[in-house]
Nucleic acid binder design. Sequence first.
RNA 1: GCCCCGAUAGCUCAGAUGGAUAGAGCGCACCCCUCCUAAGGGUGAGGCCACAGGUUCGAAUCCUGUUCGGGGCACCA
Length: 594
Amino acid sequence: MKTHLQQLITQALQQLRQDGALGAAELSSIPLERTRDRAHGDYASNIALILAKAAGRKPRELAESIRSALPASDHVAKVDIAGPGFINFFLTPTAYHAVVDEILRRSDAFGRSTLGHGRRVQVEFVSANPTGPLHVGHGRGAAFGATVANLLEAVGYQVHREYYVNDAGRQMNILAASLWLRYLEHCGEQFPFPSNGYRGQYLCNIAARFYAEHGGAYLVSAQQVFRDLPQDEIRNAAGDIVTPGDKELYIDAVVERARVLLGDHRYRFLFEVGLNAILDDIRDDLGEFGVIYDEWYSERVLTERGAVNKTLHRLRDAGYVYEREGALWFRSSAFGDEKDRVVERENGQTTYFASDIAYHLEKFERGFDWVIDVWGADHHGYVPRVKAALQAIGENPDRLDVLLVQFAILYRNGERAPMSTRSGEFVTLRELRQEVGNDAARFFYVMRKSEQHLDFDLDLAKSQSRDNPVYYIQYAHARVCSVLKQLREKGLSRDEQRGQAHLTRLTEPHEEGLLIALTRYPEVVEMAALNHEPHQLAHYLRELANAFHTYYNEHRVLVDDDALRDARLNLSLATRQVIKNGLALLGVSAPEVM
RNA sequence: GCCCCGAUAGCUCAGAUGGAUAGAGCGCACCCCUCCUAAGGGUGAGGCCACAGGUUCGAAUCCUGUUCGGGGCACCA
């Protein structure tokens, strides 16, 4: 509908331009928006206000010319000039009735468009290090990223969903060593656990399984393991340092010791076991959450293929790499970054940043027209340097969009819920999902603008009342299903054609409001997709559900009058369809009974 | 210190590209509810859009400064 009106305006402008009534005025797109007040019609354009100056005419006068040049349309009842020069469009009832037919005809496809023209976009999200289970912070990135991907797909992009697995590097070695130490504990060895090791319970569980399968095949005495290591930093239960030491140096020494004592083959095996166990867990977790990836991209594979070295060479050839204090630096400051960044450390190891440049370069080389990264807001300082690197290599950094997601804070009984347990483990995504359910979790996570802190009310998410937006929306869907059931129980049948032919009977204000809400859906999807703002869809669905519930409370659908009943049924079914489609994009189920 | 994000009703938050009288939910106040199509329905009070300047026909929205929050400023990942 919106594009239809825009076309009308465009034609009018062409007409005026031919007549020389526009001067030099030029516009890239036709401004048109929904009115907030019904008295202003359905759509309004401020185009006359914008063009007035360039055209050298008074706004209202210009608006009047545009109006008279507008071609006639079945959907437009009248056009008003109002205020300083707004052009207000009033739609005919048939314009609204047409949407009911369109919804019922296109069903699951209603709201989808071809705006993206099949352009390839990659959405990379979550990408948490496989060193432990996902926590509630990752959950927001998962829900947000998945929904953004769904939205882009809905408006016609070819979307590739990807998880970047940081399975190389120091943290993974620390994980492998930690797993080994837990395993040794199962063998009966006793020793203080390194303060910088991974201490989570999940690792003990993996170690227990490993012990059950391999017995003592990886056993080395604690005495041998910890002989002549540097001093660890030791804290008491209150967190005060009891014995000062260098925990980083210490844990690196423990890793090195594990490598030496286990030998390359056994060490690699243990490493794989730990990595796979955790990655499987993450994959299952996300899968249950309705978050499915097209690809899990391994940093290790990237590195082993030589992509990192190749990238560093390209940077060097471009003249942006120099040596200082034994390390290799990338001159990112030449591209607006605050300072230069190390890409290869003094000890010869490339940094995480280096592989990240290689990874992003690889994304571009894989032919994506557009690359989207979803990161935690705490990584925002990282954006300029990645873009700088891409630019240095000769890629267009504007093809990369980094979306930042703020933290979620859990609330229980009106108070901030602790995000980690006494043992220092975070509340996991799985625990959250088990507590509030997948649907509520998916919805609540995207209910707020992503750059906004999210207060996650656990009690509200669990409640079965209209206060809970998820419940309220799903209930609207179930209610229509219930009406159909009632229809059958009454021995009545439905005639869609008859309903369609009598949509003119829908004259109640509630019905008009509902019709208007339905026509908005494709615009909401488009806007939410292009601006990466799933919350717009979430808000819209709540409004739509509200429009339906108030209508439903006020009027009966199953009236004796066949024509009116069928018309109302069509309207109800169209509403159900749109709710179903919208919830599907959010990854939320649309139950038929509740 | 520098950088990023935020500040809108008592609370939690919407207000795309500057537009017409700034919205929703909760809470609060009042009213209705043995009709049913379920765990209620309705009404409306509540605002210096953090503050001060600026840009223009017009600013919650753009610019500058200030205040208060959150985050970031590694040869960590």
